[in-house]
Amino acid sequence: MKLGFLVDLHLCMGCKGCEVACKVENEVPLSSWRLRVKYLDRGVFPDTSRSFTPLRCNHCENAPCERICPVSALHYLDNGIVNIDNERCIGCAGCMMACPYGAIYMDPETNTADKCTYCAHRVEGGLLPACVVACPVEANIFGDIEDDTSHISQYIMAHKGNVQVRKPEKHTNPKHYYVGGGTSSLDPLAHERIEGYGLFNNITHLKTNGDPHHGIIDRFLAPFKSHEKDNKSFMQSDKTEKGGH
């Protein structure tokens, strides 16, 4: 069994239901995302179009993150999922350097690397990943790509010639496919990303990776201190910045 994922970009309407479902299911902290939907505007007014691209871990068959991880925190499951054991992770960020898809983040609460696991805990119990369940238009298709009769295999066959993966030149053999994606959707060098406030939000970079209130000394003191896991530190910081309490 090799589990794979397919997103039909013709169907995706950018509702971000999958993004929210993922956040809730996996308790993904503020400033981190396992799955996100990127909006892309093409052309010049009035001849414009908008596309939506959900981005998550590609669960590569030849995963660079697994290869570079010094302690096997990133590992393959028998069903093809690239899983992560954040109890073992040392937080070296090697995986973040290796993943060509930018799918791994440093969890600001645990100070360890984390990423989409195709909801391995749900899959183990016979459930579908949270993002698949939440999608109102069934743009997310999940299943066994080694089983010719599975929905995902049938879908790939029906759309052959129009099924793409991100960055095939990296030879990572991703198990995450797109139907209806163009170069500008899937290749980050084929679109512009202008920093600052755009049409909808502030396109920017994170100032820190990991806990923003957890400096080098704090990392050494962490085992001797209790650590709150409720995003309170972020909320307090936000209030302080605005000058209120």
Partner: peptide, 11 residues
Amino acid sequence: QSLVTLDVALP
């Protein structure tokens, strides 16, 4: 011409 108009903050 193609422009990102909504995305999360990148590392």
